[in-house]
Amino acid sequence: MMTHAANSPDATKPTGRRFAALSSRQFLLVLINVAIFLVLTILRPDAFPSWTNLKAVLSLMSYDLLIAIAMTIVLIVRGIDLSVGSVLALASVTMALLLRADASVPVALLAGLGVALLCGLTNGLLVGVVGILPFLVTLGMMSVARGIATVLTTGQYISFPNAPAWFTLFGRYELQIPNGSGFYGVPVTLIIGLTLVVVTSLLFSRWTALRSFFFVGESTEAARLSGIKVTRLTVAAYLLAALFVWFTAVLLTSANKIGYANYGIGAEMRALAAAVVGGASLAGGAGNIFGTFLGVLMLALIGNGFVMLNGNPNWQQASVGIVLLVAVGVDALRTYRDRR
């Protein structure tokens, strides 16, 4: 038993073997993604594997990816953030309203950041300092932030025709990478998304401050007695999540050129599904940014495949739930097998 456990590296926990090899879960996820990829390539060789399609899948999943990273971060400290979608909307609306009122871009961005961080701070303080369950705190925040966004806009699209062109362009900007005969256009959102995956992933494994998050999630009291500043880190986790939500808001607002109070409805569910599929646990102390990336990718490929294969659009919405249940089931079976 003991030796077996020692030999089963589970990279969702910081056992230090993360870079030695992928954990079995992530390996499985990679396999699933590859399998979906191959099946779609075989079934739709004309349309699916084109750079245009893959680029669209990858860059459009960036929004979900950033939100899912935010979710993973709070899951690691044994939290949950149901307000990600609403805060996204509120930050977007704030920035758009300011831009429409001819505020400069930095001012608008900072205001959006401020609003997002304020929401994150409120969540963090109520969870970390006051000690209220994250589920309830962020449920309340979800309602409040969306409500304020709706009140501010009365539901209208907020466009900002007078904003500097670069702001409205960069969300859709593509870097041209030569490939011999022509160019691959690589969207900025994709680059930002992937960069953040790599950077956060590295920081979580190699930066002591972020490594401490895992300890807080695994056992709050033990972490506290081990000299880890639990309250500070809990608040930091929600702030960090808010930061990622703000990234999403900036990209989305720029790409769509509108602020909108209904951005991100249901985003928390997709993010949660992706994070859990990727190895995060509601019991805290586990979570892996790369796993989350694979989870988001899987959902995105399934969504793309659905259309590619002319799936009945009615069934599209059931897919997230089924993915979640299947992932949890497979994981449970695997854990069960490991226990033997």
Binding site: R44, D46, A47, F48, S50, T52, N53, A56, V57, L60, M61, A300, G303, N304, F306, V307, M308, N310, Q316
Partner: peptide, 11 residues
């Protein structure tokens, strides 16, 4: 994403 996929699937 769904419309992009649609245009890909049905050029």
């Amino acid at each position: 994403p769904v419309n992009t996929a649609m245009l890909q699937a049905h050029p």
